[in-house]
Structure formats: C-alpha cells, structure tokens
Design a protein around this nucleic acid. Structure first.
Length: 356
DNA sequence: GATGCGTGGCG
DNA sequence: TCGCCAAGCAT
C-alpha cells in the first residue's frame, strides 16, 4: 500500500531539490518568526496566495508581534482584515494572541499540543507552524497536499470522507520524517499549487512523476475525487443606504455572517417593506425612496445573495449601537466586500445605476 | 459528521 | 456564464 522507505527517501530528496530550485519568493518565507508564520497560515486558509500578498505585510507592520495584536481592539484587527473574508479567522487570531500573552509569555509554543490548543489553530495550522517555524517533523494536509497525495498514491475515494482523510494524513505522516520537514511540507504545497494543479497537472515538470500512480494509470484528470458540495442557496436581501454629508449609516454585525464588521442595514426580503424593517431595526428614521436604486449579486460559498439597494433620504438616528461612517475613510473598522459593493452600486450621491 | 463561514480567479 | 475551489476551523 505505502511505498517502501527507500522510495520515500527518494521522493523526499526529489521534492526538496525541486523546491530549492523553483520556490516562489513569498514574504512569509523570508521569516522564521513563528508569529509571522502563524499569521500567514491563518490568512492562507481557504485563500489564494495572490490575495494574501495584499494583506500580509500590512498586517504585520501594524501588529508586529503577539503582544501588539493582543493589545489592539477587535475593530482595528478587522480593519486590517477587511476584504480578506472568513472574518472569524481574524477574531480567532486576535483571541489566539491574547491566549499566547496569557499562557505562553506572548510567544508561539513549540509544544504541538499547546499549539493545537490555540484558538483558530487546527490540525493543519498546528502542523504548518511546527514544521515551517520550528522544523519539527509534523505532517500537514491542505487542499494542495491532498491533491498531490491523491494522485501520487492513487487515492480514489472522495475528499472529505473520514477514511480518505485518514489515509491522506497517514501518507503525509509517512513522508515527513526526514531532512528539513518544513521545506518538505512547503514543497508538497508548492507542487500542488503550481504543477500538480487543478484540474490539469503539468506532469512534465513534476519531480515525483516517476512514482505517480495517477500518471501511470492515466487518471490525473479524475483524481482527486472531489468532495460533493451544495450549490449556494439563493436569498433575497435588501440594503439601506442612508447618507449624511460624507457619512453612511452603519451597524456592527452581530451574527456569524460578517460578525464584527460594520455595514449598511440589511434584512431578508425584496421590497420596500423589508427595507423599512432594516431601517427601523438599525435605529434610523427617514424616508425611503419608493423603488430600489440598484440591484447586485454577491455569491458566498453557501449563499447567492440577490441584493436590492434602497436609499433613504432625510435619515436621522433615533438610537445607539450604530454610527455614521465615511466609506472612503472608515478608520479602524472592518467593512466587508459586500458593503463596499453596495456603496459602489448606490453611487457617490445615491443616484446610481437603475435596477436591472 | 454536517454545516456555516468570504472572496476572487480561472477554465 | 457558471461551477469549482484556495495553505481550514469551530460548532
């Protein structure tokens, strides 16, 4: 089932030599600071390298160490995360920094179990920090590694299933004990990201093509077998844009969706009545225009939001927990991409594109 | 074990 | 256009 030790040693050597030759120069690879590695790994969860590049240096400049991050407000942290998505990651990272200050002298612990106990650190991230920052022989399986190992070993059961995941971790566990485990893990990920890619791998450039089961059996296009997933559920949403000078009335999200971020009042529904509800529950009084000013679509992993944007005139606050925000200079608060999209659709003065 | 959680790029 | 999915985690 699993390759003999000699084969594993050859694969390790090939992967390391290949990685040394072609590794991309990425900012987090220039650092051995466990904190920087941790931040990069959290940002990279379900997020492409090109996207993270726009955030990583800025975040580290603002919060150079766990203590600085722990001292910041949640709004400050989310402002640095604004647009990156999966905002719970930022809150967990923030919580993680406080955890480090409280329990580990403000440093990322070397002990694997202590690392695993950090908020927001699961099996993958713990292994990534352990191997990359501390060069410990800890395995990792992310989407890249799963694709590489599925093809290399010919694993043809669906991703996400318990037996498949166990097999993948076992294969990764078998491969990592050897020289430079951090570089080896990064080599596996780099290979998955650049050569053993989805949907079509470039096997001519692969350092371990010689032992690849999928290549030998002509199944590179079939493997890995993807995890079944549901289509995003359609949902109708109304948004209310109320302006006063340069300011737009925004509330702080409390729910799991966009929690901690600031945004214009939203509610489920498609008409003026729903917009009215959003207006009132946001602690605002004002006159809603009769028809939606704009309409847009925003797709999340599990929802397809059909958003009607209503503009409110003569709006004035009648409660607390919300405030006027200048979208062009929001300050230390986080805005979602959806919020920015809504404001753009509403136009600079509320006279935007007509509804579709 | 299934579900919820963002955003953007690509074939 | 549309589905896929990208260095996952918590509940």
């Amino acid at each position: 089932m699993r390759p003999p030790p000699s084969t594993l040693a050859t694969e390790r050597a090939s992967l390391l030599a290949w990685f040394d030759a072609v590794a991309r120069d990425l900012p987090w690879r220039r650092s051995r600071d466990p904190y920087a590695i941790w931040v990069s790994e959290v940002m990279l969860q379900q997020t492409r390298v090109d996207t993270v590049l726009r955030y990583f240096d800025r975040f580290l400049s603002r919060f150079p160490d766990p203590c600085a991050l722990a001292s910041a407000s949640e709004d400050e942290v989310l402002s640095m995360w604004s647009g990156l998505g999966y905002y719970r990651r930022a809150r967990l990272l923030h919580a993680g920094s406080k955890h480090l200050v409280a329990h580990h002298g403000g440093e990322v612990p070397q002990d694997p179990e202590a690392r695993r106990a950090m908020p927001g650190v699961g099996r993958y991230t713990a292994g990534a920090i352990g191997s990359i920052a501390f060069d410990r022989p800890e395995a990792i399986v992310d989407g890249n590694v799963a694709r590489v190992l599925s093809r290399l070993r010919g694993i043809d059961t669906p991703l996400g299933r318990a037996d498949t995941e166990a097999r993948l971790w076992a294969e990764a566990d078998a491969l990592v004990p050897g020289p430079r485990p951090g570089a080896l893990n990064q080599a596996l990920m780099e290979l998955g990201a650049t050569v053993c890619a989805h949907p079509t791998p470039r096997c001519a450039d692969c350092p371990v093509a010689g032992g690849c089961v999928a290549l030998r059996t002509g199944r590179t296009a079939e493997l890995p077998v993807p995890k079944p997933r549901r289509a995003p559920r359609p949902v109708d949403v109304v948004a209310v844009v109320a302006r006063q000078g340069r300011g737009v009335w925004m509330v702080r999200g409390q729910d799991a969706l966009f929690g901690g971020l600031w945004g214009v009042p939203l509610d489920e529904g498609k008409g003026r009545a729903a917009a009215e509800r959003a207006l009132i529950s946001a602690g605002l009084r004002g006159t809603l225009e009769r028809r939606a000013q704009a309409r847009l679509e925003h797709v999340l992993t599990h929802r397809r939001m059909d958003v009607r944007v209503f503009v409110a005139a003569d709006a004035h606050p009648m409660g607390e927990g919300a405030r006027w925000v200048d979208p062009d200079a929001p300050g230390d608060i986080g805005l979602s991409a959806l919020t920015r999209k809504i404001l753009a659709a509403a136009g600079p003065s509320g006279t935007a594109s007509p509804p579709r």
